[in-house]
Computed example of a mutant assay.
Amino acid sequence: MGEEQQREERWRTEAYPMKGGDGMDSYANNSSYQRGGVDAAKKVIIEAVGEKLDVKSIVSSNIFRIADLGCSVGPNTFFAVESIINAVQSKWQYDQYQGGVLHDLDHHVCPEFQVFFNDHSSNDFNTLFTSLPPDRQYFAAGVAGSFYCRLFPSASLHFVHSSYAINWLSQVPKPIIDKSSAAWNKGKIHYSNSKDVVVEAYEVQYSEDMECFLHARAQEVVFGGLIALVIAGRPNGMPHSQNPQNITFELMGSCLMDMAKKGKVSEEKVDSFNIPMYLMSPQELEAAVDRNGYFRIERLEDLPNVLQLGGRPKSEVISSHWRAIMHGMMEVHFGRDVVIILDELLELFRKKLEEDLSLMDSISDTLYTFFALLKRQAME
């Protein structure tokens, strides 16, 4: 089997879309934390485009192509795309009119923009496209498929954006759902506070996925093109067990086990349920980029943590956030009774948060997000 075939086998992915629609429990109405990250990255993206993007040299057909990978259903993807386009337009105008003089009479018109919204085929693209901004400055297209594989023609993209997406693995690591494996993760739903061998299985899956992600993007992004990543992760040096988001999963797992002990859900189902999310550190991302060799990290910095409560209790906002995120994966695993299970699970989760205010504040106030800007290099 050749190298490309091996990659294809590796990125056969599982799909757990966010809760679609525009209802009260939808991701569209329960993604204020992600919106905070997108807003925080806006200033950094504007600066990065101004400093690192040579629009004229990388655009050959007067079309500037942007892809948002893991776009979900909006509206956060629309805010991110708008920021990128505004930044590119400003950079174009600055380059063309330096000192108030038009420098290139033949290329003074800003390129047109084409935006590709990508997510798994099970994503709610209907809601995404019915909610597109009517006054948008771009031509929109949907691209279904996993971003751990090739999605676009060679050297066709000028700017790639992905927000709160590459922390999701392509699949649950196989050893942790194998009862005969030393990494069998019985009684837990994540690697936080699990055996070292479980953590290692997640680390291996993350490493393989990032190899596939960067390999695919290296073929799709033009020389000089940029990749902007907003990543839910953990600070350098922080043990996995101390990461607030991992503590959230541990608490969620304890609630599921409480339900299993009461016979509300199958204990066997809980034992085989694991969340395919890995919280990387900036150092781990740097190592993955170095191994790939086709990109250079231009910026790497922490983003402020902003949780918008909208007048709602903090415990309610946090539990609603996780309902929108976990609905898809729990429906696949637990079946059509998922709504009943989620109702009880998240009520238990909310009560445990309210019983331990310091824990709730830790989970909500110290979640870690960082920004990375990668530039495609011309290889010698």
Rank of each mutant, 00 (worst) to 15 (best):
H240T: 14
N167G: 04
I84C: 05
S60D: 13
S122R: 11
M210N: 09
Y97F: 15
R7H: 09
V222M: 03
I46Y: 11
R312L: 13
F113D: 01
A288W: 07
V204W: 04
G225Q: 00
Y138M: 10
K42L: 11
I341R: 00
K42T: 15
G2C: 13
D104M: 06
M238H: 06
L132W: 08
N118S: 03
E250D: 14
V221G: 03
V265I: 14
I58V: 04
Q219R: 13
S181G: 02
S156E: 00
G237H: 06
K264H: 09
L373M: 11
S319V: 10
Q98M: 08
E208V: 07
D95H: 04
E301K: 12
D361E: 14
S320N: 15
S207E: 11
S320G: 11
F129L: 07
F113L: 09
E3Y: 15
H333P: 04
E286H: 11
S254P: 01
N76P: 04
G37I: 08
S162R: 01
D124G: 10
P244N: 06
F213P: 00
N126G: 07
G50C: 01
A287Y: 03
F147P: 00
L374P: 02
S364I: 01
S207N: 15
H190W: 12
Q242H: 12
R136V: 08
N118P: 00
K262E: 13
G99C: 11
A141R: 01
D54P: 03
V289H: 02
M24F: 15
A287R: 10
V143Y: 08
K351M: 13
L346N: 02
F79E: 14
D356W: 07
N185P: 08
V44G: 05
P173E: 08
L353M: 12
V332N: 05
A288M: 13
M24R: 15
C212I: 06
F223K: 13
S315Q: 02
M277T: 14
S162W: 09
L342E: 15
A183L: 03
N30Q: 06
L128M: 12
P175D: 04
G328V: 03
K195G: 03
A324T: 06
M277D: 02
A216I: 07
L285G: 06
